[in-house]
Write a protein that binds this DNA or RNA. Structure first.
Lengths: 224, 224
DNA sequence: TTAATTATTTAGATTAGTCTAAAAATTTGT
DNA sequence: ACAAATTTTTAGACTAATCTAAATAATTAA
Protein backbone atom coordinates (compact mmCIF):
# COMPACT_ATOMS: atom_id res chain seq x y z
CA UNK A 1 0.00 0.00 0.00
CA UNK A 2 1.32 3.40 -0.97
CA UNK A 3 1.50 6.30 1.48
CA UNK A 4 1.48 9.92 0.34
CA UNK A 5 4.02 12.43 1.62
CA UNK A 6 1.26 13.97 3.66
CA UNK A 7 0.36 10.68 5.30
CA UNK A 8 4.02 10.03 5.96
CA UNK A 9 4.34 13.34 7.73
CA UNK A 10 1.46 12.50 10.02
CA UNK A 11 2.91 9.06 10.77
CA UNK A 12 6.28 10.57 11.56
CA UNK A 13 4.68 13.18 13.81
CA UNK A 14 2.77 10.52 15.71
CA UNK A 15 5.92 8.44 16.09
CA UNK A 16 7.87 11.38 17.50
CA UNK A 17 5.07 12.26 19.87
CA UNK A 18 4.79 8.67 21.12
CA UNK A 19 8.53 8.60 21.67
CA UNK A 20 8.49 11.62 23.93
CA UNK A 21 5.53 10.58 26.04
CA UNK A 22 4.74 8.16 28.82
CA UNK A 23 1.05 8.01 27.91
CA UNK A 24 -0.10 5.39 25.50
CA UNK A 25 -2.06 7.66 23.19
CA UNK A 26 -1.25 10.77 21.19
CA UNK A 27 -3.96 13.42 21.04
CA UNK A 28 -5.43 15.25 18.10
CA UNK A 29 -4.22 18.57 19.47
CA UNK A 30 -0.66 17.29 19.92
CA UNK A 31 -0.52 16.31 16.28
CA UNK A 32 -2.16 19.54 15.16
CA UNK A 33 0.35 21.59 17.12
CA UNK A 34 3.32 19.62 15.84
CA UNK A 35 2.28 19.90 12.22
CA UNK A 36 0.83 23.42 12.46
CA UNK A 37 -2.57 22.25 11.30
CA UNK A 38 -6.09 22.69 12.54
CA UNK A 39 -7.40 19.93 14.83
CA UNK A 40 -10.30 19.36 12.45
CA UNK A 41 -7.85 18.58 9.67
CA UNK A 42 -6.04 16.12 11.90
CA UNK A 43 -9.26 14.32 12.76
CA UNK A 44 -9.88 13.72 9.06
CA UNK A 45 -6.43 12.35 8.46
CA UNK A 46 -6.36 10.07 11.48
CA UNK A 47 -9.60 8.53 10.31
CA UNK A 48 -7.90 7.79 7.03
CA UNK A 49 -4.79 6.34 8.68
CA UNK A 50 -6.95 4.22 10.98
CA UNK A 51 -8.83 2.97 7.93
CA UNK A 52 -5.48 1.85 6.52
CA UNK A 53 -4.59 0.15 9.83
CA UNK A 54 -1.52 2.31 10.31
CA UNK A 55 -2.82 3.61 13.65
CA UNK A 56 -5.42 2.60 16.18
CA UNK A 57 -7.88 5.35 16.92
CA UNK A 58 -10.45 5.78 19.65
CA UNK A 59 -12.67 8.81 19.28
CA UNK A 60 -12.09 11.61 21.77
CA UNK A 61 -9.20 9.61 23.23
CA UNK A 62 -6.29 9.52 20.84
CA UNK A 63 -4.20 7.40 18.49
CA UNK A 64 -1.20 5.12 18.53
CA UNK A 65 0.79 3.53 15.74
CA UNK A 66 0.24 -0.10 14.80
CA UNK A 67 3.26 -2.27 14.01
CA UNK A 68 2.67 -1.45 10.35
CA UNK A 69 2.61 2.25 11.18
CA UNK A 70 5.80 1.99 13.23
CA UNK A 71 7.56 0.24 10.37
CA UNK A 72 6.67 3.08 8.05
CA UNK A 73 7.72 5.70 10.60
CA UNK A 74 11.11 4.06 11.09
CA UNK A 75 11.61 3.80 7.36
CA UNK A 76 10.99 7.51 6.91
CA UNK A 77 13.30 8.33 9.81
CA UNK A 78 15.95 6.06 8.33
CA UNK A 79 15.71 7.89 5.02
CA UNK A 80 15.75 11.32 6.67
CA UNK A 81 18.85 10.55 8.71
CA UNK A 82 20.75 8.88 5.88
CA UNK A 83 20.12 11.90 3.67
CA UNK A 84 21.34 14.15 6.48
CA UNK A 85 24.58 12.19 6.63
CA UNK A 86 24.92 12.56 2.88
CA UNK A 87 24.30 16.30 3.01
CA UNK A 88 26.85 16.89 5.76
CA UNK A 89 29.53 14.32 4.95
CA UNK A 90 29.47 14.48 1.16
CA UNK A 91 28.00 17.84 0.21
CA UNK A 92 29.58 19.73 3.12
CA UNK A 93 26.44 21.29 4.51
CA UNK A 94 26.58 22.46 8.12
CA UNK A 95 24.63 20.38 10.62
CA UNK A 96 22.16 23.22 11.14
CA UNK A 97 21.34 23.52 7.42
CA UNK A 98 20.19 20.03 6.53
CA UNK A 99 16.84 19.56 8.19
CA UNK A 100 14.54 21.16 5.63
CA UNK A 101 16.22 19.51 2.67
CA UNK A 102 16.10 16.10 4.36
CA UNK A 103 12.39 16.68 5.01
CA UNK A 104 11.94 16.71 1.26
CA UNK A 105 14.35 13.89 0.45
CA UNK A 106 12.85 11.52 3.01
CA UNK A 107 9.77 11.11 0.80
CA UNK A 108 11.66 9.91 -2.26
CA UNK A 109 10.39 6.44 -2.93
CA UNK A 110 12.96 3.79 -3.85
CA UNK A 111 14.23 1.01 -1.63
CA UNK A 112 17.09 0.39 -4.03
CA UNK A 113 18.12 4.03 -3.71
CA UNK A 114 18.23 3.96 0.07
CA UNK A 115 20.13 0.70 0.11
CA UNK A 116 22.77 2.07 -2.22
CA UNK A 117 22.92 5.38 -0.39
CA UNK A 118 23.46 3.52 2.88
CA UNK A 119 26.33 1.55 1.33
CA UNK A 120 27.82 4.66 -0.28
CA UNK A 121 27.87 6.34 3.13
CA UNK A 122 29.40 3.19 4.60
CA UNK A 123 26.39 2.25 6.69
CA UNK A 124 26.52 5.05 9.24
CA UNK A 125 24.94 4.32 12.61
CA UNK A 126 24.27 7.95 13.61
CA UNK A 127 23.21 11.11 11.81
CA UNK A 128 25.00 14.48 12.13
CA UNK A 129 23.02 15.32 15.26
CA UNK A 130 23.87 12.07 16.99
CA UNK A 131 20.50 10.43 16.37
CA UNK A 132 20.63 6.70 15.67
CA UNK A 133 19.76 5.56 12.14
CA UNK A 134 17.32 2.63 12.00
CA UNK A 135 18.63 -0.30 9.97
CA UNK A 136 16.86 -1.78 6.97
CA UNK A 137 14.63 -3.85 9.23
CA UNK A 138 13.63 -0.90 11.39
CA UNK A 139 15.91 -1.83 14.28
CA UNK A 140 17.14 1.26 16.05
CA UNK A 141 19.80 1.61 18.75
CA UNK A 142 18.47 3.17 21.90
CA UNK A 143 21.33 5.13 23.31
CA UNK A 144 21.36 5.65 27.04
CA UNK A 145 22.22 9.32 27.14
CA UNK A 146 21.21 11.98 29.63
CA UNK A 147 20.72 15.73 29.35
CA UNK A 148 23.83 17.57 30.47
CA UNK A 149 21.59 19.53 32.84
CA UNK A 150 21.35 16.53 35.17
CA UNK A 151 25.04 15.62 34.91
CA UNK A 152 27.26 15.46 37.96
CA UNK A 153 29.98 17.90 38.87
CA UNK A 154 33.56 16.88 38.27
CA UNK A 155 32.68 14.06 35.88
CA UNK A 156 33.71 13.76 32.25
CA UNK A 157 31.10 13.16 29.53
CA UNK A 158 30.97 12.64 25.80
CA UNK A 159 28.67 14.90 23.80
CA UNK A 160 26.50 12.39 21.96
CA UNK A 161 23.38 14.19 20.73
CA UNK A 162 20.88 17.02 20.96
CA UNK A 163 17.21 17.04 21.90
CA UNK A 164 16.58 20.32 20.09
CA UNK A 165 17.15 20.47 16.36
CA UNK A 166 16.41 24.14 15.78
CA UNK A 167 18.87 25.97 13.57
CA UNK A 168 19.45 28.68 16.17
CA UNK A 169 20.25 26.17 18.88
CA UNK A 170 22.66 24.21 16.68
CA UNK A 171 24.38 27.41 15.62
CA UNK A 172 24.77 28.35 19.26
CA UNK A 173 26.64 25.08 19.87
CA UNK A 174 28.79 25.71 16.82
CA UNK A 175 29.67 29.13 18.21
CA UNK A 176 30.70 27.48 21.46
CA UNK A 177 32.99 25.23 19.41
CA UNK A 178 31.15 22.21 20.65
CA UNK A 179 30.81 19.23 18.29
CA UNK A 180 29.51 15.69 18.60
CA UNK A 181 32.04 13.40 20.21
CA UNK A 182 33.77 16.17 22.17
CA UNK A 183 34.47 15.53 25.83
CA UNK A 184 32.75 17.75 28.35
CA UNK A 185 34.16 18.19 31.84
CA UNK A 186 31.66 19.64 34.25
CA UNK A 187 33.63 22.08 36.38
CA UNK A 188 30.77 23.53 38.39
CA UNK A 189 27.02 23.77 38.52
CA UNK A 190 25.32 26.93 39.71
CA UNK A 191 22.80 26.04 42.38
CA UNK A 192 20.56 29.02 41.76
CA UNK A 193 19.87 28.84 37.99
CA UNK A 194 21.31 25.47 37.06
CA UNK A 195 23.88 26.96 34.70
CA UNK A 196 27.15 25.09 34.14
CA UNK A 197 30.80 25.87 33.69
CA UNK A 198 32.36 23.24 31.48
CA UNK A 199 35.61 22.50 29.70
CA UNK A 200 35.30 21.26 26.13
CA UNK A 201 37.77 18.69 24.79
CA UNK A 202 40.19 19.46 27.63
CA UNK A 203 40.95 22.73 25.86
CA UNK A 204 38.54 25.62 26.35
CA UNK A 205 36.09 26.68 29.05
CA UNK A 206 32.52 27.66 28.33
CA UNK A 207 29.41 28.73 30.20
CA UNK A 208 26.07 27.03 29.52
CA UNK A 209 22.63 28.13 30.68
CA UNK A 210 20.39 25.42 32.09
CA UNK A 211 18.17 25.90 29.03
CA UNK A 212 21.01 25.01 26.70
CA UNK A 213 22.41 22.24 28.91
CA UNK A 214 19.04 20.54 28.99
CA UNK A 215 19.13 20.10 25.21
CA UNK A 216 22.65 18.66 25.17
CA UNK A 217 22.72 14.88 25.46
CA UNK A 218 25.79 13.17 26.88
CA UNK A 219 26.96 9.85 28.19
CA UNK A 220 29.62 9.30 30.84
CA UNK A 221 33.05 8.71 29.38
CA UNK A 222 34.08 5.04 29.21
CA UNK A 223 30.50 3.84 29.29
CA UNK A 224 28.80 3.18 26.00
CA UNK B 1 6.67 32.24 -7.59
CA UNK B 2 6.53 28.62 -6.59
CA UNK B 3 5.75 25.84 -9.04
CA UNK B 4 4.27 22.52 -7.96
CA UNK B 5 5.75 19.21 -9.08
CA UNK B 6 2.75 18.80 -11.34
CA UNK B 7 3.29 22.15 -13.00
CA UNK B 8 6.96 21.34 -13.39
CA UNK B 9 6.11 18.12 -15.18
CA UNK B 10 3.93 19.97 -17.66
CA UNK B 11 6.62 22.57 -18.27
CA UNK B 12 9.22 19.89 -18.84
CA UNK B 13 6.90 18.04 -21.23
CA UNK B 14 6.28 21.20 -23.23
CA UNK B 15 10.01 21.92 -23.35
CA UNK B 16 10.79 18.43 -24.65
CA UNK B 17 8.03 18.66 -27.24
CA UNK B 18 9.24 22.06 -28.45
CA UNK B 19 12.75 20.69 -28.74
CA UNK B 20 11.70 17.88 -31.05
CA UNK B 21 9.51 19.95 -33.34
CA UNK B 22 9.89 22.42 -36.12
CA UNK B 23 6.48 23.97 -35.48
CA UNK B 24 6.25 26.88 -33.15
CA UNK B 25 3.43 25.55 -31.01
CA UNK B 26 2.85 22.43 -28.98
CA UNK B 27 -0.67 21.03 -29.03
CA UNK B 28 -2.92 19.93 -26.24
CA UNK B 29 -2.98 16.37 -27.54
CA UNK B 30 0.82 16.20 -27.74
CA UNK B 31 1.07 17.10 -24.09
CA UNK B 32 -1.75 14.78 -23.13
CA UNK B 33 -0.08 11.87 -24.93
CA UNK B 34 3.32 12.59 -23.43
CA UNK B 35 2.01 12.79 -19.88
CA UNK B 36 -0.65 10.08 -20.28
CA UNK B 37 -3.41 12.49 -19.34
CA UNK B 38 -6.73 13.39 -20.81
CA UNK B 39 -6.72 16.42 -23.15
CA UNK B 40 -9.35 18.08 -20.97
CA UNK B 41 -6.98 17.90 -18.02
CA UNK B 42 -4.23 19.46 -20.08
CA UNK B 43 -6.46 22.33 -21.15
CA UNK B 44 -7.06 23.20 -17.50
CA UNK B 45 -3.38 23.13 -16.64
CA UNK B 46 -2.25 25.18 -19.63
CA UNK B 47 -4.74 27.85 -18.67
CA UNK B 48 -3.11 27.93 -15.27
CA UNK B 49 0.42 28.07 -16.68
CA UNK B 50 -0.60 30.82 -19.11
CA UNK B 51 -2.07 32.75 -16.16
CA UNK B 52 1.34 32.51 -14.50
CA UNK B 53 3.04 33.68 -17.72
CA UNK B 54 5.09 30.51 -18.05
CA UNK B 55 3.62 29.76 -21.48
CA UNK B 56 1.76 31.65 -24.16
CA UNK B 57 -1.49 30.03 -25.12
CA UNK B 58 -3.85 30.59 -28.00
CA UNK B 59 -7.08 28.64 -27.83
CA UNK B 60 -7.44 25.80 -30.32
CA UNK B 61 -3.92 26.51 -31.53
CA UNK B 62 -1.34 25.51 -28.95
CA UNK B 63 1.23 26.71 -26.44
CA UNK B 64 4.89 27.67 -26.26
CA UNK B 65 7.12 28.41 -23.32
CA UNK B 66 7.95 31.99 -22.37
CA UNK B 67 11.49 32.87 -21.31
CA UNK B 68 10.38 32.41 -17.73
CA UNK B 69 8.99 29.00 -18.62
CA UNK B 70 12.16 27.97 -20.42
CA UNK B 71 14.26 28.96 -17.43
CA UNK B 72 12.19 26.72 -15.22
CA UNK B 73 12.34 23.85 -17.72
CA UNK B 74 16.11 24.08 -17.94
CA UNK B 75 16.42 24.19 -14.20
CA UNK B 76 14.42 20.98 -13.83
CA UNK B 77 16.44 19.31 -16.58
CA UNK B 78 19.65 20.43 -14.87
CA UNK B 79 18.49 18.88 -11.63
CA UNK B 80 17.33 15.69 -13.31
CA UNK B 81 20.63 15.17 -15.11
CA UNK B 82 22.82 16.04 -12.14
CA UNK B 83 20.93 13.52 -10.01
CA UNK B 84 21.40 10.92 -12.75
CA UNK B 85 25.14 11.50 -12.65
CA UNK B 86 25.05 11.10 -8.89
CA UNK B 87 23.08 7.87 -9.11
CA UNK B 88 25.40 6.30 -11.67
CA UNK B 89 28.79 7.67 -10.63
CA UNK B 90 28.42 7.60 -6.88
CA UNK B 91 25.71 5.08 -6.08
CA UNK B 92 26.66 2.68 -8.89
CA UNK B 93 23.26 2.40 -10.50
CA UNK B 94 23.19 1.20 -14.09
CA UNK B 95 22.36 3.83 -16.71
CA UNK B 96 19.04 2.16 -17.45
CA UNK B 97 17.90 2.25 -13.81
CA UNK B 98 18.10 5.91 -12.96
CA UNK B 99 15.32 7.61 -14.84
CA UNK B 100 12.41 7.05 -12.48
CA UNK B 101 14.38 7.98 -9.38
CA UNK B 102 15.68 11.14 -11.04
CA UNK B 103 12.09 12.01 -11.97
CA UNK B 104 11.39 12.21 -8.26
CA UNK B 105 14.62 13.92 -7.22
CA UNK B 106 14.31 16.63 -9.86
CA UNK B 107 11.49 18.24 -7.87
CA UNK B 108 13.47 18.66 -4.66
CA UNK B 109 13.59 22.36 -4.05
CA UNK B 110 16.90 23.85 -2.91
CA UNK B 111 19.28 25.92 -4.98
CA UNK B 112 21.99 25.43 -2.38
CA UNK B 113 21.58 21.66 -2.69
CA UNK B 114 21.96 21.63 -6.45
CA UNK B 115 24.95 23.92 -6.31
CA UNK B 116 26.70 21.69 -3.81
CA UNK B 117 25.71 18.54 -5.68
CA UNK B 118 27.15 20.01 -8.87
CA UNK B 119 30.43 20.76 -7.10
CA UNK B 120 30.51 17.34 -5.43
CA UNK B 121 30.17 15.71 -8.83
CA UNK B 122 32.90 18.02 -10.17
CA UNK B 123 30.62 19.99 -12.46
CA UNK B 124 29.84 17.32 -15.02
CA UNK B 125 28.87 18.54 -18.48
CA UNK B 126 26.97 15.41 -19.57
CA UNK B 127 24.67 12.93 -17.89
CA UNK B 128 25.04 9.13 -18.10
CA UNK B 129 23.11 9.06 -21.39
CA UNK B 130 25.26 11.71 -23.01
CA UNK B 131 22.74 14.52 -22.62
CA UNK B 132 24.24 17.93 -21.87
CA UNK B 133 23.63 19.36 -18.40
CA UNK B 134 22.48 23.00 -18.41
CA UNK B 135 24.65 25.25 -16.25
CA UNK B 136 23.34 27.34 -13.36
CA UNK B 137 22.25 30.07 -15.76
CA UNK B 138 20.36 27.68 -18.02
CA UNK B 139 23.02 27.63 -20.73
CA UNK B 140 23.09 24.28 -22.45
CA UNK B 141 25.62 22.90 -24.94
CA UNK B 142 24.06 21.88 -28.22
CA UNK B 143 26.05 18.93 -29.44
CA UNK B 144 26.22 18.38 -33.16
CA UNK B 145 25.59 14.65 -33.19
CA UNK B 146 23.85 12.52 -35.79
CA UNK B 147 21.94 9.24 -35.61
CA UNK B 148 24.19 6.33 -36.48
CA UNK B 149 21.56 5.32 -39.05
CA UNK B 150 22.68 8.15 -41.35
CA UNK B 151 26.39 7.57 -40.80
CA UNK B 152 28.74 6.80 -43.65
CA UNK B 153 30.38 3.48 -44.36
CA UNK B 154 34.05 3.08 -43.46
CA UNK B 155 34.12 6.06 -41.14
CA UNK B 156 34.89 6.04 -37.42
CA UNK B 157 32.51 7.65 -34.93
CA UNK B 158 32.29 8.27 -31.21
CA UNK B 159 29.14 7.10 -29.41
CA UNK B 160 27.96 10.30 -27.74
CA UNK B 161 24.30 9.85 -26.76
CA UNK B 162 20.94 8.18 -27.23
CA UNK B 163 17.63 9.53 -28.46
CA UNK B 164 15.65 6.77 -26.76
CA UNK B 165 15.83 6.51 -22.99
CA UNK B 166 13.72 3.40 -22.48
CA UNK B 167 15.11 0.82 -20.11
CA UNK B 168 14.82 -1.98 -22.69
CA UNK B 169 16.72 -0.02 -25.32
CA UNK B 170 19.51 0.93 -22.91
CA UNK B 171 19.79 -2.67 -21.75
CA UNK B 172 20.09 -3.76 -25.35
CA UNK B 173 23.10 -1.47 -25.78
CA UNK B 174 24.59 -2.79 -22.57
CA UNK B 175 24.21 -6.32 -23.91
CA UNK B 176 26.03 -5.24 -27.06
CA UNK B 177 28.84 -4.02 -24.82
CA UNK B 178 28.42 -0.54 -26.15
CA UNK B 179 29.05 2.38 -23.80
CA UNK B 180 29.22 6.15 -24.18
CA UNK B 181 32.54 7.28 -25.55
CA UNK B 182 33.23 4.02 -27.39
CA UNK B 183 34.42 4.26 -30.98
CA UNK B 184 32.18 2.81 -33.65
CA UNK B 185 33.60 1.79 -37.01
CA UNK B 186 30.93 1.36 -39.64
CA UNK B 187 31.99 -1.69 -41.62
CA UNK B 188 28.98 -2.00 -43.88
CA UNK B 189 25.43 -0.80 -44.32
CA UNK B 190 22.76 -3.10 -45.66
CA UNK B 191 20.99 -1.38 -48.52
CA UNK B 192 17.74 -3.28 -48.12
CA UNK B 193 16.86 -2.78 -44.43
CA UNK B 194 19.41 -0.17 -43.34
CA UNK B 195 21.02 -2.48 -40.78
CA UNK B 196 24.70 -1.97 -39.94
CA UNK B 197 27.72 -4.08 -39.22
CA UNK B 198 29.98 -2.18 -36.85
CA UNK B 199 33.12 -2.71 -34.81
CA UNK B 200 33.02 -1.36 -31.27
CA UNK B 201 36.16 0.09 -29.70
CA UNK B 202 38.32 -1.59 -32.33
CA UNK B 203 37.65 -4.85 -30.55
CA UNK B 204 34.37 -6.64 -31.28
CA UNK B 205 31.92 -6.74 -34.18
CA UNK B 206 28.19 -6.27 -33.77
CA UNK B 207 25.09 -6.12 -35.89
CA UNK B 208 22.60 -3.26 -35.47
CA UNK B 209 19.09 -2.98 -36.88
CA UNK B 210 18.16 0.34 -38.45
CA UNK B 211 15.69 0.82 -35.59
CA UNK B 212 18.47 0.61 -33.02
CA UNK B 213 20.99 2.59 -35.08
CA UNK B 214 18.52 5.46 -35.42
CA UNK B 215 18.48 5.90 -31.64
CA UNK B 216 22.26 5.88 -31.29
CA UNK B 217 23.80 9.35 -31.55
CA UNK B 218 27.38 9.72 -32.70
CA UNK B 219 29.83 12.32 -33.87
CA UNK B 220 32.70 11.75 -36.29
CA UNK B 221 35.99 10.99 -34.58
CA UNK B 222 38.36 13.97 -34.30
CA UNK B 223 35.58 16.48 -34.63
CA UNK B 224 34.22 17.87 -31.42
C1' DT C 1 -17.50 23.66 -50.17
C1' DT C 2 -19.72 21.17 -47.24
C1' DA C 3 -19.97 16.98 -44.62
C1' DA C 4 -17.24 13.99 -41.83
C1' DT C 5 -13.54 13.52 -38.80
C1' DT C 6 -10.44 15.05 -35.41
C1' DA C 7 -8.90 18.17 -31.85
C1' DT C 8 -9.97 21.16 -28.23
C1' DT C 9 -12.61 23.19 -24.82
C1' DT C 10 -16.39 23.44 -21.50
C1' DA C 11 -19.28 21.57 -17.94
C1' DG C 12 -19.85 18.91 -14.18
C1' DA C 13 -17.98 15.45 -10.99
C1' DT C 14 -14.34 13.26 -7.88
C1' DT C 15 -10.44 12.80 -4.50
C1' DA C 16 -6.90 14.52 -1.29
C1' DG C 17 -5.86 17.79 1.79
C1' DT C 18 -6.91 21.79 3.89
C1' DC C 19 -9.91 25.44 6.34
C1' DT C 20 -13.75 27.76 9.63
C1' DA C 21 -17.69 27.51 12.46
C1' DA C 22 -20.66 24.95 15.15
C1' DA C 23 -21.86 20.86 17.81
C1' DA C 24 -20.68 17.30 20.97
C1' DA C 25 -17.83 15.01 24.31
C1' DT C 26 -14.54 15.20 27.94
C1' DT C 27 -12.08 17.32 31.61
C1' DT C 28 -11.54 20.74 35.24
C1' DG C 29 -12.53 23.67 39.07
C1' DT C 30 -15.20 25.03 42.68
C1' DA D 1 -21.59 17.12 41.10
C1' DC D 2 -22.36 20.28 37.96
C1' DA D 3 -21.13 24.47 35.42
C1' DA D 4 -17.37 26.23 32.81
C1' DA D 5 -13.58 25.47 30.02
C1' DT D 6 -11.25 22.73 26.85
C1' DT D 7 -10.79 19.28 23.38
C1' DT D 8 -12.48 16.79 19.64
C1' DT D 9 -15.53 15.89 16.05
C1' DT D 10 -18.88 17.06 12.50
C1' DA D 11 -20.59 19.81 8.78
C1' DG D 12 -19.86 22.45 5.04
C1' DA D 13 -16.72 24.82 1.99
C1' DC D 14 -12.38 25.57 -0.89
C1' DT D 15 -8.27 24.49 -4.06
C1' DA D 16 -5.43 21.55 -6.99
C1' DA D 17 -5.41 17.96 -10.00
C1' DT D 18 -7.70 14.71 -12.17
C1' DC D 19 -11.69 12.39 -14.87
C1' DT D 20 -15.90 11.62 -18.39
C1' DA D 21 -19.27 13.30 -21.45
C1' DA D 22 -20.90 16.82 -24.25
C1' DA D 23 -20.27 20.90 -27.02
C1' DT D 24 -17.61 23.54 -30.15
C1' DA D 25 -13.88 24.67 -33.31
C1' DA D 26 -10.65 23.36 -36.82
C1' DT D 27 -9.09 20.32 -40.34
C1' DT D 28 -9.64 16.95 -43.97
C1' DA D 29 -11.61 14.60 -47.70
C1' DA D 30 -14.96 13.71 -51.09
Amino acid sequence: MKTSSTEENYIKAIYKLEEGQVKNAVTTNDIAARLSMQPATVTDMIKKLAEKKLITYKKYYGVSLTEKGKTIALDIIRKHRLWEVFLVKKLKFKWDEVHDIAEQLEHINSDELIQKLDDFLENPKFDPHGDAIPDRDGKIKTIKSIPLSIASKKLTYIFSGVSNHETRFLQHLTNLNLSLGNTIDVDSINEYDGSLKIKINKSHNEFLSEQVASCILVHPKNDK
